[in-house]
Design a binder for these strands. Structure first.
Lengths: 362, 362
DNA sequence: CTGAAAGCGCTAACAA
DNA sequence: TTGTTAGCGCTTTCAG
């Protein structure tokens, strides 16, 4: 174990990193040069074969491929990277990896990326624009092939455009990326919210309050807009309560609202967290659902139909969202030759109303 | 945009990757050489300063640091990597990133890693040992600083030991890594299961069935062992039902079990998924909880106390688990000089019984 | 304690 | 179509 090299190591005090014990040539992964020697060609021929260059005689190519297979050669990403080539790695930035929705996105992204032999670098931005930009820059510097991002940037914050302009492939999903000319995969939040609102109105509700928080987040504001527009088109007055980011706030709102004469008879909850808060707060104060208060929530979640009562929701599929996004990104990465004629693609996915028990019988 | 280089590009047909348009020297990140020039030292002095080498006069060091700051110099990871140094990246392999528990682990790991300026490469193994080994090897080849892993390998599958032996820092968490001599952070599943069982017995239950699936997974088998041992120490016969991996199986088990004369009066569910299945199946068949059947579940989850009835659980903290694991890994990475005297560390975290309503009044 | 030179594995440029 | 050469930015080695 401790070879003569350890003498040298004693003198060093590298506290940040360590090195593997230097391997002998034969222990190390084979290089392009060894492949070339075995195939009886020059190194460039091997390089060309690896990078699917066209100008190669099939015979030569197969000779090279034989040598590669025999040696079990694998490209050295570090060296490629140093030559300015992008590595087989994609980046993923989401606001919060522990959120069920984004976690499922991350899982799907990683799965598909792996199938295409890409690795996945992840980061939570914790909804902090500064962190988001920092992480994206780090990723770009690392020569990632591309980036998938659920951006928390304000609409006027164009800081990530420079990366895109530098030729770094970016696909924004769930929320658009400030600056616009980026490939985007979104959910039709507005239409989903309209459908939810319509559903409540169909059940005879006239006083409906829309409850949520973080109204400056794109998805929330879209849902809110859908709610308002649907209410107004029915001649109803849209009520909102948009500071219910925690259970306490929800509890006190329920407590002070329920006794009111003109209290709402139905609630449209803008995401699964508020749905949970409301369910709990209403239950605690023994407000029967849907008898005394109907409830519909945006975002379906695993346990929605185990709740009491089972929650009627507008469902959006994180798997589908992620799949479309990573597919699009990989396509961009592969098709990068024609970077000149870039025309951003926008995909919008639908939602699905899942009727359960919390709005009464259908 | 289309400079004279595009002529060359036309001939190439690289379908896998693309290159950034070649930047001019001044657009590119500053190199160690430029720092050296500005600080009036040799490149090696800069390199030594960067790697916190001791043999540097403070004066020289601060001169170098000044130059680094002025230029905004950042180390080029690709070049370091090519020299065999590990990069500031850690790997994380879990069975399933979309699982709430592991998602929270991933989030915590990434957050702490980021604070220490490490990036995080993730992979789901999908519980497939082959995939797990493949991903771990890829990560090791990429010169990651270390690896955090929730291993799905069987106890006799020592394939990852070779990585560890090659000097790659690995910390196993949630489940031990086959082979043994690895740093490990675990939860005391056995004690948690005993506590749950004890809780049911305290409520007067004598016929208790332990329900779950995947009994060959470490955590499950530990919980099972805890259940059995606690039952036996009370002179009770431990009943088990260990093929309830989906809702259908759960439904039919409930249906055929409830009418039985000597049916269990309480269920210990081995994880949050079975808890969900049971809650739903029992509710569907109008079995009142806890009146006709008491239920306790291992794994707390976000909505456990919004269920009907609120579920009594044995809680383990994914945040704490992840924090301890990444802290340990970073410590190892930093302390790698003394690789000779490696003594594996084992940390065991406790669980907490959260009494709610599903086992009756306390 | 510091510096100059060599070269990690790969690919762009140029030559044949 | 194929080969040769020169370096990418860094760290090791060895010489001051």
């Amino acid at each position: 174990m401790a070879d003569n090299r350890s003498l040298t190591l004693k003198v060093r005090h590298d506290v940040s990193y360590h090195r593997l014990p230097m391997k002998k040539r034969e222990d190390r992964a084979p290089t392009i040069r060894e492949v070339a020697r075995l195939a009886n060609v020059g190194v460039m021929t091997v390089s060309r074969a690896l990078n699917s260059h066209l100008s190669l005689r099939p015979a030569t190519r197969s000779r090279v491929e034989g040598a590669i297979a025999k040696l079990g050669y694998q490209q050295n990403e570090a060296a490629r990277m140093m030559r300015g080539r992008r590595t087989k790695t994609i980046g993923l930035i989401v606001p919060d990896l522990s959120d069920q929705f984004f976690a499922t996105c991350a899982h799907t992204v990683q799965q598909i990326a792996r199938e295409q032999r890409f690795m996945t670098l992840v980061a939570s931005s914790d909804r902090d624009p500064g962190l988001e930009v920092e992480q994206a820059r780090l990723m770009s510097n690392r020569m990632l092939a591309g980036l998938l991002i659920v951006s928390s940037l304000r609409a006027d914050d164009h800081r990530l455009q420079s990366l895109r302009d530098a030729g770094f492939s970016i696909v924004a999903f769930d929320r658009p990326l400030a600056g616009g000319n980026t490939d985007t995969v979104l959910v039709d939040n507005r239409a989903g919210a309209k459908e939810a609102t319509q559903h409540l109105i169909d059940h005879g509700h006239r006083r409906i309050t829309c409850v949520g928080y973080d109204e400056d987040v794109y998805t929330v504001s879209e849902r809110l807009a859908g709610f308002k527009s649907e209410m107004m088109s029915h001649g109803l007055k849209p009520q909102t309560k948009l500071d219910m980011g925690n259970l306490e706030a929800t509890r006190s709102w329920v407590k002070e609202t329920m006794p009111l004469k003109d209290r709402p008879t139905a609630i449209f909850s803008l995401n699964h967290r508020t749905s949970g808060f409301l369910l709990r707060a209403l239950f605690e104060q023994q407000v029967q659902i849907p008898k005394r208060m109907a409830l519909i929530g945006f975002d379906d979640f695993e346990l929605a139909d185990l709740m009491f009562p089972a929650l009627t929701t507008v469902s959006q599929s994180p798997v589908e969202l992620a799949r479309r996004s990573i597919d699009l990104l990989l396509e961009r990465i592969r098709g990068m030759q024609s970077t000149a004629s870039f025309e951003p693609i926008k995909i919008v996915l639908g939602t699905r109303l899942i009727v359960r028990a919390s709005c009464g019988p259908h």
